[in-house]
Design a protein around this nucleic acid. Structure first.
Lengths: 190, 190
DNA sequence: CTTGAATTTCGATGCCTATCTAATTAGACG
DNA sequence: CGTCTAATTAGATAGGCATCGAAATTCAAG
């Protein structure tokens, strides 16, 4: 995901290519025309078009000896959509209503955990909330786990141990990863 | 416009910065935390954050000696919107119904002008259609004008002169620009 | 099959910038 | 006021990439 997104931004992060996209938004152009408009040589334009084509942003239509390049508006819109989807994300919300009530008492509006709940049920709610920072299928170092927790509470060591104890995080050697929610959503003893 | 857009793409067109945005999407982070997560030194992270801040994508909140950095989701969404707005553009359509009928006769579906109409009224319709390639408030070189026209018809010289004659394009020295539509929408002798 | 035009591929060069270390600023705490 | 921590700024180095000229490719037209 980030893979393609990075390539997409790289493709548009150059003045020549952004101008090419602007020109193609007006209509089809040949390599020669683009080279003339941009004051560049044909090989350079060809190079830029190859990068845009690799992202599916530009399509080609051959007519005689010249090749007409056009902008694929749908591809551009689709990729821009992904940027938007990235943005909304989830609100600082809880998994369910019961958790929400508990979190309201223990977490400030800016995401700081005021206190680690002593009651097991309440502690569970807080831990589930902390897990929103970790994605499944990814490995984290202990430092990364600590870093994520520390933006909510100073005692990352305790909370990290609790996350492992509640079977939300798994640990092997020096790596951590998120366990499937099914294994801790309901039960989970420390 | 393109100015800011280019800087926006440049800001996100680097793996480190894209990862930072991803981390900040999960919640606030300090420079240290980011440096640890990215396996970079603090000055490097500081450098990247400065670039993201310059685009308004990241905001800072100081608390004691540490500074918490957060993602400005609205700014990200607003910029992504601009990419989308760029994309839709206008369809290969005519200004009005009368022009549409004329264009249907002289322009193929892929935007090629089959023949330059001899009748003045019909020629006017074609010229108005050609003008969709030129934006107001921008200056074009003769080469740029030719390039735009040539994607529709080989005889860019004649058509360019017609555009000037119909007062759609203005010319001074070696520069061309689009004249206000009010000055040629109705009248206009060659 | 040959010629010519439009484009792409290749290899080399130079600029931009990501990254580091070292030094400096700014705030917290005795 | 010193000291400690977090962060930024400054300066230097290295790697990536845009650009070009030259050569190879593709395709249409005789």
């Amino acid at each position: 995901m980030t893979e393609t997104l990075l390539e997409f931004f790289k493709a548009l992060a150059h003045e020549s290519r952004l101008t090419i996209v602007g020109l193609l938004a007006q209509g089809e152009r040949s390599v020669q025309q683009l080279a003339q408009a941009l004051a560049l040589k044909e090989p350079t334009v060809s190079h830029h078009l190859a990068i845009l084509k690799a992202q599916g942003l530009v399509t080609v239509r051959a007519a005689g000896t010249t090749r007409w390049h056009a902008l694929d508006r749908e591809a551009l819109a689709a990729l821009a959509q992904r940027v938007l989807q990235q943005a909304p994300a989830r609100a600082p919300a809880a998994a369910d209503a019961a958790d929400a009530k508990i979190l309201q008492a223990f977490v400030t509006r800016d995401g700081t955990l005021k206190q680690i709940p002593a009651a097991r049920r309440k502690r569970g709610a807080v831990l589930r909330w902390l897990m929103r920072d970790f994605a499944e299928g990814r490995r984290y170092s202990e430092a990364q786990i600590n870093a994520a927790i520390q933006s909510h509470h100073w005692d990352s060591a305790t909370l990290r141990r609790e996350l492992v104890g509640h079977r939300m995080l798994a640990r092997k050697d020096r790596a951590y990863w998120r366990r499937p929610e099914a294994e801790w959503k309901a039960g989970g003893e420390a």
